[in-house]
Amino acid sequence: MSAESSKIVEKKIEAARKKKGNEEVEKSRKNIQPMPSSSSSVEEKWQWKLEIPNGLKKIVLDDQKMIEEGRLVKIPAQFSVEAMFEKYLESLQINRNGPKTGEEQLTQHHIEMIIDYFNLYFRSKILYKAEQGQYKKLRKEEKKDHSRFLPSEHYGLIHLARSFDVIPSVLELKLSDEKHFKNITPVVQKFIEWLDDNKEMFYNKNKSYMKC
């Protein structure tokens, strides 16, 4: 076989190898793709969202503009997330530390879970980059008193409203049982609607920000 013929054969062999390799890769990709489910409940779980009222949406949009203009939310907020939660329980005539019915226990438990996730993912998913310095300073001051720092005790409605777009996706990864979502959704939705109805008590755009 001539040198030229040998090169042609080698090229064909190499091309065949590449083709086979691509086929193997494609086969592997198909094997790791999530299996389509005929169950609508699974699809609902991974598409779980909270319905955010227009009033709270506007707070979030206005907040983005204020941050872009070089302003920061005043911290501590006049009403912290914890204080708003206490007000909500009072409106339902639920004593946070007292005896409760089963339904009242679920209400408190589910909203406390939302607040726990607010604290857990606050810095990584809720806080804007421009706010990191303010956050570090506040946390450092709190540590001087040897107290545990919880964002829910310092930040208010503006940051909580932001979190309602974040928390559902986080919970989807943590909760495997769709029944949890069916139980949580109406409880949290009522809390969100109550916040929207009472937002003037907890938020004033002109008084909630300061220049950097």
Rank of each mutant, 00 (worst) to 15 (best):
M1W: 02
A3F: 04
S5N: 04
S6Y: 01
V9H: 01
E10H: 04
K12T: 03
I13E: 01
I13Y: 04
E14Q: 12
E14R: 13
A15V: 09
A15G: 05
A16E: 05
K18N: 09
E23Y: 14
E23G: 14
E24K: 14
N31V: 06
P34G: 05
P34M: 05
S37K: 09
S39V: 10
E44F: 15
L50W: 11
E51N: 15
E51S: 13
E51G: 07
I52Y: 05
P53W: 11
L56K: 04
D63F: 07
Q64M: 13
K65E: 07
M66I: 07
I67H: 00
I67K: 03
G70W: 14
R71P: 00
I75F: 04
P76T: 10
A77E: 02
A77T: 04
F79C: 03
V81Q: 02
E82R: 09
F85M: 04
E86C: 03
L92W: 14
I94T: 08
N95H: 07
N95M: 11
N97C: 06
N97L: 10
P99N: 15
K100G: 10
T101H: 14
Q105F: 15
L106R: 15
Q108Y: 09
I111S: 08
E112A: 04
M113N: 03
I115G: 01
I115E: 00
Y117E: 04
Y117S: 02
N119E: 07
Y121S: 00
S124R: 09
I126D: 00
L127N: 00
L127S: 01
Y128K: 05
Y128T: 04
K129A: 07
A130C: 07
A130V: 02
Q132E: 11
G133V: 10
G133M: 09
G133R: 14
G133E: 09
K137M: 08
R139D: 06
K140I: 07
E142A: 15
D145C: 11
H146S: 14
H146Y: 15
S147W: 12
R148E: 12
S152L: 03
S152T: 02
E153M: 14
L157Q: 01
H159G: 00
R162D: 00
R162V: 00
F164C: 01
D165G: 03
S169N: 06
L171H: 02
L175K: 13
L175A: 05
L175P: 01
S176D: 06
E178G: 11
K179Y: 05
I184A: 02
T185V: 08
V188F: 08
Q189Y: 14
W194R: 14
N198Y: 11
K199F: 02
Y203W: 10
N204A: 06
N206W: 12
K207A: 08
S208H: 05
M210S: 12
